[in-house]
Computed example of a mutant assay.
Amino acid sequence: MAHTHTEDKGNQNRLLAAFIVTAVFMVAEIAGGLLSGSLALLADAGHMLTDTAALLMALLAVHFARRKPSTRHTFGMLRLTTLAAFVNAIALLVITVLIVWEAVRRFMHPEPIAGGVMLVIGVAGLFANLFSFWLLHHGSEEKNLNVRAAALHVLGDLLGSVGAVAAALVIMYTGWTPIDPLLSILVSLLVVRSAWALLKESLHELLEGAPSRLDVEKLTKMLKRGIPEVRNVHHIHLWQVGEKPVMTLHVQVIPPHDHDALLHRIHEYLHEHYQIAHATVQMEYQHCEEADCMLSAESAGHAHHHH
């Protein structure tokens, strides 16, 4: 437990630092966008706004994930992180629509843009994003959906800032202003890509989907192969809360000499091979005849042979 606690703390500090940097630069970009008349800067600021929100939600999520489970919330507040990621993804999509709408309007009626101001803000934003990305990338982000979401955002921003700098240079040297709305649309496409992935992942978890890295049918086969006493596995329910996979299953076994030892072996197997620390196993000696048992491919196979 101590290990995850310090890791959480580290994540929290990194998120906090990234949050401050991003929030400050978002304000700078909005000011810069309004002063220079650049939509690419405003698009990037819109992007940074969702980033700031993402980081704030990730911060709150880390905070809530530490809360101890209660009798009302037996899993603690872990789902909050998933909900945060979901809300965040939707916000990203909405902002993208607004930016693209404005870009199309700008193509019809080009507006003058101050390239110099745009360049200065763009370069500053680039460094801010590099710093944030570096901060988050040193977190244990592979495991944490929220830190990963935040890092994704910042990466998109980084590309957005590169775009803003490029657009500023084009405008300064050629005076071709349509490059600005064009780039704001490109930034938006990047945002949509990361938002869509985030939306799918968080929705899957909210709908109690099985974690994507776990294949239920394969798990069933491996369990039977790994523990000879196990004859059939059915009524499997597998879902995820926060970062933890949770599972319930019925196992038909050959009546053992030592019931508890076999149960312990099944738990050990699930933990060792699938990192499932929390499994509820119901052991049965009779063959399951209920219709529900046919859910497992194996017992469907057995049923077939009986006919």
Rank of each mutant, 00 (worst) to 15 (best):
residue 2 A to S: 11
residue 3 H to A: 01
residue 8 D to A: 09
residue 9 K to E: 08
residue 10 G to R: 12
residue 11 N to C: 13
residue 14 R to K: 01
residue 14 R to W: 00
residue 15 L to M: 12
residue 23 A to L: 15
residue 23 A to I: 06
residue 25 F to K: 07
residue 28 A to V: 11
residue 30 I to C: 09
residue 37 G to Y: 04
residue 45 A to G: 05
residue 49 L to F: 12
residue 54 A to S: 14
residue 54 A to D: 07
residue 57 M to W: 12
residue 63 H to S: 11
residue 69 P to S: 07
residue 70 S to K: 10
residue 72 R to S: 11
residue 79 R to Q: 07
residue 79 R to Y: 10
residue 81 T to K: 14
residue 82 T to I: 08
residue 85 A to H: 06
residue 85 A to M: 08
residue 95 I to P: 03
residue 96 T to Y: 12
residue 101 W to H: 05
residue 105 R to S: 07
residue 107 F to Y: 11
residue 112 P to M: 04
residue 117 V to M: 05
residue 123 V to I: 09
residue 129 N to V: 02
residue 131 F to E: 00
residue 139 G to I: 02
residue 144 N to A: 03
residue 145 L to V: 01
residue 150 A to W: 06
residue 152 L to Q: 13
residue 161 S to D: 06
residue 164 A to Y: 04
residue 165 V to I: 09
residue 166 A to P: 00
residue 171 I to A: 02
residue 171 I to K: 02
residue 179 I to F: 12
residue 180 D to S: 07
residue 181 P to M: 02
residue 186 L to T: 05
residue 187 V to M: 13
residue 191 V to W: 13
residue 191 V to F: 12
residue 194 S to E: 14
residue 202 S to I: 06
residue 203 L to T: 10
residue 213 R to N: 14
residue 213 R to I: 05
residue 213 R to D: 14
residue 220 T to V: 15
residue 236 I to D: 02
residue 243 E to I: 01
residue 247 M to L: 12
residue 253 V to D: 00
residue 258 D to L: 02
residue 264 H to Y: 07
residue 266 I to Q: 01
residue 267 H to I: 04
residue 269 Y to G: 06
residue 280 T to H: 01
residue 285 Y to C: 03
residue 291 A to K: 00
residue 303 A to P: 05
